[in-house]
Design a protein around this nucleic acid. Structure first.
Length: 334
DNA sequence: AAATCGTGGTA
DNA sequence: TTACCAAGATT
């Protein structure tokens, strides 16, 4: 972070804010450093192969962010001369930059008086004013409160201070109200019920989906991989062949969806929880001879020693580790 | 405009 | 263990 009231590098601010969307600082740190080392400027990122960017993002989640990150870098490099727009409105036109990120970059990197509101700020504001209307419907009213509080002097520092307050003092459970600089003006505290806010709409139950995954290893120690379609869940990421992920496991479905006939052996079940469903995959493995042709739909054979360089999401690392326990041991990596 | 989209940490 | 949720965006 830059010194008090100073503008930080817009590329650094943008990259960190995108990574921090729905993601903890702890999880982001190593990825942020890795990206800056690989691509020191936005033009470097714009010039990078998208596969490299997806592989570098693997494990961080919400992979549409990585696809939009690349598109945004290309837009800045090709349509803005390699310079980020310096207004909230200009930034919001770019891929992957919404209300929050546009305001955050405008305030922190360009000293603009933009109202920055993330989940932390929503919690602080909802408590300060004891807002009973549930999120997300109450968002516009809350943002108006933030805008009214945001100063013209050092708006970026104000934004970061509000987020820090929400992250460390005005926490979801057991907030440290005694330490809060607003404890003389907080309506929720005055009513002795800070934890009642923010009020949120009820969330729905998480269904279970079932499927099977197939790990084929040939005599040369290569594993059969394929690339998922660009859109939707894990879009553009790498996977091993699987059946469809459906509510029911239909008998006979599994063998018919194997990439080819082989001595498939069940190797156990892995469970992975996504945002809106839980996935249980039965893992099958087979030792096959060399020379099998990869299927038509973006399949290839990859040395098991090179899995770290692949764009494998966490669920697929679980599958491979289940089938090949040694795959992710250090001595088997390049 | 409700649904979709990952993962890991915490209580 | 379950539930929540973390510096949200897109369709």
């Amino acid at each position: 972070m830059a010194a008090k009231g100073k503008r930080a590098d817009p590329y650094h601010v943008w990259l960190s804010e995108v990574m921090l969307q729905q993601t903890t600082v702890q999880a982001v740190k190593p990825y942020f450093l890795k990206f800056l080392a690989a691509w020191p400027s936005v033009t470097d990122l714009a010039a990078a192969p998208v596969e490299d960017v997806m592989a570098a993002w693997a494990g961080l989640g919400y992979y549409a962010r990585a696809r939009n990150l690349k598109k945004c870098a290309e837009a800045v490099a090709n349509e803005h001369g390699g310079v980020f727009p310096d207004t909230e409105e200009g930034l919001k036109q770019l891929p992957g930059i919404g209300d929050y990120t546009a305001a955050a970059v405008a305030a922190i990197a360009f000293n603009r008086q933009a109202a920055v509101m993330d989940g932390n700020v929503e919690r602080v504001i909802s408590r300060l004013f004891a807002i009973d209307a549930p999120l997300p419907g109450s968002k516009p009213a809350m943002k108006a409160k933030v805008a009214a509080l945001t100063p013209s002097d050092r708006p970026g520092d104000f934004a970061q201070a509000m987020m820090d307050l929400g992250a460390t003092i005005c926490t979801p459970k057991r907030p440290a109200c005694a330490l809060c600089p607003f404890n003389g003006h907080c309506l929720a505290l005055a009513h002795d019920e800070p934890e009642r806010f923010p009020v949120k709409a009820a969330k729905k139950a998480k269904p279970v989906r079932l499927g099977a995954a197939f790990v084929a290893v040939n005599a040369s120690g290569e594993i059969l991989l394929r690339r998922r379609v660009e859109s939707g869940l894990l879009g553009g990421m790498t996977e091993v062949p699987t059946t469809a992920w459906t509510a029911r496991m239909d008998g006979g479905t599994e063998a018919s969806h194997a990439p080819f006939a082989a001595g498939w052996q069940a190797a156990g079940v892995i469970t992975h929880v996504f945002t809106h469903f839980e996935l249980r995959l039965t893992v099958y493995r087979a030792q096959v001879p060399d020379g099998l042709k990869p299927g038509p739909d973006d399949e290839w054979w990859e040395p098991v020693t090179n899995l770290d360089a692949q764009a494998l999401p966490t669920v697929m690392k679980k599958v491979i580790a289940q089938a090949i326990p040694s795959a992710y041991r250090p001595e088997n990596r390049n």
